[in-house]
């Protein structure tokens, strides 16, 4: 797990399709997602709310709600092993141990009636053969690592502020030194200064422990400061994928461009914001052809039928658009 092998990606997701059943309707949350992640790198999954990002993460960890969610198709290969085909027992060994997840709302992510220290040791004891004393020592080290004094081991969650709670959550996630960390909007619920602290800390830990990360966010700023690779998600599909530089310097998909255009510029005097017209599609009734076409100003007849091809515009830079040429022309302007 320590070698950075360029040819065999650490995590590979192939053609993942997930839908939820709500009564008689099918909510198509993930519609053919494929990407890969190299060891030690962090991938940002960017998109609006409801784009399917969290579903992808939960699908990897296989903690989607059994009753309503169905993985229709796809493979999730972790070092070559398809996670979707593993037994539940084997998957439990992986959860918290090789893959860990941090959730969005720190206020409710911790069990209010258990001491925070015990919530950390719980994960450690489950996945290792340490004694209770050893686990507690390790847990205290984790707390120190995330910047919480070890004396607070025996305190309850309600005694911590939001930012500190999130740190505890991170401590729990990293306690068993997972190879892959899934972070679902970890700083969205925190205020900006704390946000910076937490991101900085995650980056440091990642560096120290060599963890790979998938960071889900809707904030381009967070992406810019924390990610190596970026995947733009729209309506359950990855519409653009590339390195941080590629996406930020040469956004190819109309949606990506729309996102960047919507960010107010600090340089020029802007009177109006430039939103993307329209709303994301209804996931129970997705449009024919390109899902973005109803809102796209470059939309043509070809966009309205069939599957959109995935074009490689540069080395490793993928774009799911058949009008990308038009988009590229616009950029040069």
């Amino acid at each position: 797990m320590n070698s950075k092998d360029q040819s065999a990606p650490f995590l590979e997701v192939k053609d993942l399709e997930v839908f939820y059943s709500a009564g008689k309707q099918k909510v198509q949350a993930v519609n053919g997602v494929s990407f890969s992640l190299q060891k030690g790198r962090s991938l940002g999954l960017v998109g609006e709310t409801g784009a399917g990002k969290t579903t992808i993460a939960k699908a990897i960890l296989r903690i989607l709600p059994h009753a309503s969610a169905t993985v229709k198709n796809g493979q999730i290969l972790l070092n070559g092993t398809n996670l979707l085909s593993l037994s539940e027992e084997r998957m439990r060994d992986i959860r918290g141990n090789e893959i860990a997840m941090i959730f969005q709302d720190p206020m409710t992510a911790l069990n209010p009636i258990l001491r925070v220290g015990n919530q950390i040791t719980e994960a450690i004891l489950h996945h290792s053969s340490m004694t209770k004393a050893e686990a507690e020592k390790h847990a205290m080290e984790m707390l120190e690592m995330v910047g919480i004094p070890a004396e607070r081991f025996g305190e309850y969650p309600h005694q911590f502020s939001g930012g500190m709670k999130q740190r505890v959550v991170i401590a729990i996630a990293l306690a068993c030194n997972p190879a892959l960390l899934l972070a679902d909007e970890p700083t969205t619920a925190l205020d900006v200064t704390i946000q910076a602290q937490v991101l900085h800390m995650i980056a440091g830990l990642k560096e120290k422990l060599g963890t790979s990360m998938i960071l889900i966010t809707h904030d381009m700023g967070v992406v810019a400061s924390s990610c190596d690779d970026v995947a733009i998600v729209y309506a359950g599909q990855i519409v653009e994928y590339g390195t941080l530089e590629q996406i930020f310097d040469h956004p190819s998909h109309p949606y990506t461009r729309g996102l960047f255009n919507a960010i107010p510029s600090m340089n020029i005097d802007q009177e109006y914001l430039e939103p993307i017209d329209g709303l994301p599609p209804d996931p129970t009734h997705l449009p024919e052809g390109c899902y973005f076409s109803p809102r796209c100003k470059y939309a043509a007849e070809a966009c309205k039928t069939g599957n959109m091809p995935v074009i490689t515009t540069a080395d490793g830079h993928l774009c799911r658009c058949c009008q990308y040429n038009l988009v590229a022309k616009d950029e040069k302007k």
Partner: peptide, 26 residues
Amino acid sequence: GSDYVTTARSKGLTEREVIYKHALPN
């Protein structure tokens, strides 16, 4: 449906532990 139950599951605990140790006491 609480978040901390999802957290517990994501730690890899058995369903029994999740129900009886985390969900039921609350």
